[in-house]
Design a protein around this nucleic acid. Structure first.
Lengths: 337, 337
DNA sequence: GGGTATTATGATAACGTTATCATATCGATG
DNA sequence: CATCGATATGATAACGTTATCATAATACCC
């Protein structure tokens, strides 16, 4: 493969002059530039990003480490990250941790090795065992979607407390007194924050004491299991709050299997909307997070820090959710418990 | 950041010995290995993958260029690629082209610059304007999901002809005589192959002359538009074949908006299943492609070529689809046209 | 026309690692 | 004990690029 040395020989200049042409830096006379560009064409030259990165200490690569690439919420977020990155001349590396801290560690180490200019991370746990990887390193990090302790970084996330609170207020206002919350694991901030917000709404409505809470995982099967358990409670809930989209779909499946209609027999609300393109008949009432925007803002903060326009203190950007009321939350409840 | 030179100084050995420890290559005495490993710990060393790749000409990175990361079919395929890559010690770079050849070109150029060891490509067109990028380069390429002309590469794809044929046979056997096919653009092999397979079934059933064909794009909006047009035909179709999942969802939306019930008023079949985790009540009859497996097989062929166990000739792996009959295709039609 | 700023080009070294070749030690073998 | 293969370590150069510093040519100003 041709190198700038070959190009330099062909164009009759020094390698560094070729470098100047490629990078559009420094001074190059117009006719020299033409000669070099012609040599580039003729030799079918492809710059070696490894050598460039090694010498210049900039790879123009960002990396995104997230927990579940099959979840449309994260796919959308990733799209936001990608668009913002590529608009600024950066490539994006995406890694998937399956919510596992060991995989997270392996990937973060690999990314540090590759000298990505910056990292966007959806941490799998609030208390990260991988926080140590970032100490004494100058690779800047932005935390997305969740809070984490022990990592000095900017944070961009949706307002889980507020979104869950709104959904709770809605259910309470519809007259529900016995509500089940099916959520992710404790130790994950989004899960905990949604519980906090929802509890607050319950407390204000005076029905916190009858609240049923089930902790599981942010996947469909877990949604099914938790729903099964919730339905066995006595008295059973008249409404369910699912803490993310996959849990919600699992719940709907279980309800359908049991012959329970939504919202006639039981009401449902959930966190995270599904993309319009994937749902034939949207009917879940949700707190929709600005997934795409979380990604875009994350890149903005990261690039500011790379170009050292950022303040020394770390920032936390909390974006509001949108409450979308559809069929699944139903009408006001007409009966007593 | 610490380098192997620092480590060497600390451990009292030559840099190359440190390299041997890190790579587990050559001979190193046990006590020396221990000393070096301790130095690695103490200095919190992270190898520089840029320098490694530059010198050794191997980056242990594969890249995947696909057309639509928001489509669960491709997400699943990407999962297969990722799992297979990481199981073999390779990282994965994923790029999204939005079916645009200009974006495809930019990304392929970047990947060549980064010296990815191999590329997995879902080409946006059958006649690729970017084929030239691979000539006289030794970066091996595997084409996924589609056929392409002018690129010397292994190919792994689902059998679009067969899948579409099966769906066509099914609809014909149910008694449909007037069927609309809503598909992607001509010039994309998957789109064309599905038309070929479907037409074959129609021909064999003696109803090719009444077939309605609409070309659009593999996105929801296009599915809506094509369905609208199809319904205006005279006589209107009694069944629709959607050539991918997003087109199908668009069609369902339009049918619902018009108050048409599926399958009672009009039957539907489609290509590509949606993941179980995303659909509450699966009811589309589909030809499901082995998306995950396409990814896995692609990596296998690529790695074989990297380790030069592959034959000189290029291989084409065509995986069968699974016909999943659900509600949307309905019962046998009881009426005449 | 002498001095200064701007434009243009290059020599050299360095980024951090490993390929290649060289050399030394050790144990086993007959 | 001479020989040989296995074990162990290192010196040197190279991968392809750009940072840094130096120098030359040109333009500009009073």
């Amino acid at each position: 493969m041709a190198t700038i040395i070959d190009l330099a020989a062909k164009a009759g200049v020094a390698p560094i002059t070729v470098s100047r042409v490629i990078n559009n830096s420094g001074y190059v006379r117009e006719d020299v530039r033409k000669r070099v560009q012609q040599a580039i064409e003729e030799l079918d030259y492809v710059p070696n990003a490894l050598a460039r990165g090694l010498r210049s200490k900039r790879t123009y690569t960002l990396s995104l480490v997230l927990t579940d690439i099959t979840n449309p919420f994260f796919t959308t977020m990733a799209r936001g990250v990608e668009d913002a990155a590529s608009a600024n001349g950066y490539m994006l590396l995406v890694c998937n941790t399956d919510e596992r801290e060991d995989k997270e560690r392996v990937y973060l180490q690999l990314l540090l090795q590759k000298r990505a200019d910056g990292i966007l991370l959806v941490p799998s746990r609030k208390l990260s065992v991988n926080a140590d990887l970032f100490r004494n390193r100058h690779t800047p990090v932005v935390i997305l979607d969740r809070r984490v302790e022990g990592i000095s970084a900017d944070v961009v996330r949706g307002d889980s407390v507020q979104g869950a609170y709104q959904l709770g207020v809605l259910l309470a206002s519809l007259g529900h007194k016995r509500i089940a919350m099916i959520t992710g694991p404790s130790g994950v901030s989004s899960s905990e924050d949604r519980e906090t917000g929802f509890r607050k709404a319950m407390r204000e409505a005076g029905i916190e004491s009858t609240l049923l809470v089930y902790n599981g995982y942010f996947v469909q099967e877990s949604g099914m299991e938790m729903t099964n358990k919730a339905l066995q409670a006595s008295p059973p809930p008249t409404a369910i709050f699912a803490a993310n989209n996959f849990i919600a779909i699992g719940a709907l499946k279980t309800l359908q299997a049991k012959g329970l209609r939504v919202p006639e027999d039981i009401a449902m609300v959930a966190f995270d909307d599904l993309p319009e393109s994937m749902v034939t008949f949207p009917f879940l009432t949700v707190a929709a997070q600005p997934a795409y925007d979380i990604g875009v803002q994350g890149v903005r903060l990261l690039l500011e820090r790379l170009e050292s326009e950022a303040p020394t203190l770390f920032r936390e950007v909390v974006l509001p959710n949108e409450l979308i009321v559809r069929k699944s939350s139903g009408e006001a409840v007409k009966y007593h418990q």
